[in-house]
């Protein structure tokens, strides 16, 4: 039996979670105060996921860059691939929140969407 200690990142409370693993399978999760914590902990010890927030370049905008995020979580080990892919993207103003900046970014199956308005 393997034990992993985690700090939940699902919300700012930051619960201290203990996960018990056996042969790579989650046996128990404790210390969380909500179901999101259990989901986070189970994912974190098997296939950790993160939302990536970054920028892409913007043409003809009030500002030279515009903020973006992955529409849902991507595998943690793909974070830097996503960020790298975003460096190749340039949008043209006007852009608004929810616009798609990139589809299936870095082959994660996840789209990247714009998170600020520049019109």
């Amino acid at each position: 039996m393997e034990t992993r200690e985690l700090t939940c990142i699902r919300c700012p409370i930051g619960c201290h979670i203990t996960v018990e693993l056996e042969n790579g399978e989650v046996r128990s999760v404790s210390g969380n105060s909500c179901p999101r914590g259990e989901e986070y902990a189970s994912n974190e010890v098997t296939h950790p996921m993160r939302t990536v927030t970054s920028l892409v370049r913007l043409k003809n905008g009030k500002r030279p860059v515009v903020s973006v995020k992955t529409k849902s979580d991507v595998p943690k080990e793909k974070m830097m691939d996503v960020v790298k892919a975003l460096k190749e993207i340039e949008l043209t103003a006007p852009v608004k929140i929810g616009d798609i900046a990139a589809e299936n970014v870095a082959d994660t199956g996840v789209d990247v969407i714009v998170t600020s308005n520049d019109d």
């Binding site: 939302t51 995020k69 600020s116």
Partner: peptide
């Protein structure tokens, strides 16, 4: 909020996780 492009905003107010500019908007 305009420069806080990371997520984690709005879990209490909107019950979803937003970035700073989205929360401001």
């Amino acid at each position: 909020l305009n420069q806080c492009i990371h997520n984690g905003f709005g879990l209490h107010t909107f019950k979803e996780e937003l970035t700073g500019p989205e929360y401001a908007a």
